[in-house]
Design a protein around this nucleic acid. Structure first.
Lengths: 134, 134
DNA sequence: ATGAATGCAAAAACTTTGCATGACG
DNA sequence: CGTCATGCAAAGTTTTTGCATTCAT
């Protein structure tokens, strides 16, 4: 089980809910899931995990760097496995579709802007809200 | 009253709560206020406006383009007067200080990235999390 | 065995809504 | 005056928390 090592490395006890949630995030083709999404998916898979636990575990995973939490528009947070490298997101305002992208030029420019003002860049969050061209 | 014209131009009836809320946003030095912030500030100023009305009015103001709603991290939305032009934000993770900036190069690149994929840019949200250089 | 993790239900935080009353044009 | 806006309280959402029970080591 690769998952168990991930958990142990993160200093988290290997429990059934944590393993199941990690597997869920790893196996779903929908890369961005809300706590509710994860909960429902587990229920459908016959796994009996409480919603509160899903929230608690996802928060722990975030603290451990296993997942990234995004606050896109629309009230609820979504979580994404932190396996691939850094990237930003485009969200279609019509379909809700999420597209990942990485643009070296923007990344570079961000660092410059911050540096010009005597700061260092700790993190950033960029979301482009888009619509299919008619 | 400049505010009254703003409201009329936006097609909104000039009512006391709307005027007070607009003035509040205009006069506060804190550029980004949550609905709760606005509500409390009005109460302290002796203005008797319901919290529900603050939410309703801010939502109308957003639809009218008078304010911009931001979903920064942390559960609650903040609103900002749309008087100055568009800009993005840098937030200092140590002090919480918010710095506004505008970078033509990033703006331009965003449009290009989206266009390359057959979409049009509706809106975007960029926040740089920064720290003072040691 | 012992401390941590879970499930449930209750509560908290934020926002929206229904409805009777009151204000704007 | 008619209609739209407001206030209040109640309900909706999303997320967190308290506590008794269960589980991992």
């Amino acid at each position: 089980m690769v998952e168990n090592n991930e958990l142990r490395k993160a200093g988290l006890k290997v429990t059934l809910p944590r393993v199941k949630i990690l597997q869920m995030l790893d196996s779903t083709e929908q890369r961005h899931m809300s706590a509710e999404d994860v909960y429902k998916a587990l229920m459908e898979a016959g796994e009996d995990v409480g919603l509160a636990t899903v929230y608690r575990v996802l928060t722990q995973f975030e603290a451990a760097g296993l997942v990234v939490r995004h606050n896109f528009d629309g009230g609820h947070a979504v979580f994404e496995l932190a396996d691939s490298g850094h990237h930003d997101h485009m969200v279609c305002v019509d379909s809700g579709e999420v597209i990942e992208f990485f643009d070296p030029e923007i990344e570079k420019r961000q660092k410059e802007i911050v540096k010009e003002r005597g700061y260092e860049l700790v993190d950033h969050n960029l979301v482009l809200y888009i619509r299919k061209k008619k």
